[in-house]
């Protein structure tokens, strides 16, 4: 599963559906899943380190943390995008006015 997930990420980047700069977070996630499967004892160690009873709770905790980070990241991106869209809309209005002015000038 984890390997398939990694393959999917690579394929999305290959088909230019996902930009390189956004892919690192996902590749890191895929890799950590692979590592935790391969070295299960690390997960057990982490579980006792954070005081959890079962290793599944550790996985849930990590998943929740990961989703929170991803969402925050998207919120930041959306804020950036809306500023750019606002600037573009303003520029459109100003340029439209300028074109009208130039057309009506003798």
């Amino acid at each position: 599963m984890a390997l398939l997930f990694l393959l999917l990420i690579f394929d999305l980047v290959r088909r230019r559906r996902l930009k390189i700069e956004y892919s690192w977070l996902w590749i890191a996630t895929g890799c950590s899943i692979v590592v935790l499967i391969w070295r299960y004892d690390w997960l057990v160690w982490l579980t006792s380190a954070i005081g959890a009873v079962t290793s599944t709770s550790t996985l849930f905790l990590l998943a929740l943390f990961f989703l929170a980070v991803v969402n925050l990241h998207y919120s930041v991106r959306i804020s950036e995008m809306s500023t750019r869209i606002k600037d573009l809309a303003q520029e459109t209005a100003l340029l439209q006015n300028e074109v009208k002015r130039l057309k009506s000038a003798p």
Binding site: Q90, A93, N97
Partner: peptide, 11 residues
């Protein structure tokens, strides 16, 4: 000046 869509008072 015509904005292409509603952007809000500030913009």
């Amino acid at each position: 000046l015509t904005l292409p869509f509603n952007t809000g008072y500030g913009p």
